[in-house]
Amino acid sequence: MLLTLDLNDPRPLHEQVAGAVRRAVASGTVLPGQRLPSARELADALGVNANTVLRALRDLRDEGVLEFRRGRGVSVLRPPDGREVLRRMARELLDEAERYGHRPEEVIEIIKELS
């Protein structure tokens, strides 16, 4: 699975890792029922602590995206809620807009132009 972390993201690391896993599941590269790599492997690849990854995975389990099974590791239960994914993407879009000095109203204008 492909995971991307934003190096300038000010949010806590476990939220960022959860976001990366959520995006990977939402993109369909890991389908419901498929197993995720172990927390250890994800942590080694991302260069973060294994506990951080575990916390992120637990958050996603509480969200209903992942399922923990004893002896079978972590697998995808269902893709994340579309509205939830969009809300997070919109949050990132607003942050990006702020970096370029645009207010939310202007972003809404842009969206209206596009749709």
Partner: peptide, 10 residues
């Protein structure tokens, strides 16, 4: 450049 992308599989 400001993103770290990794791929994990088995």
């Amino acid at each position: 450049p400001d993103r770290r992308t990794v791929w994990v599989s088995s």
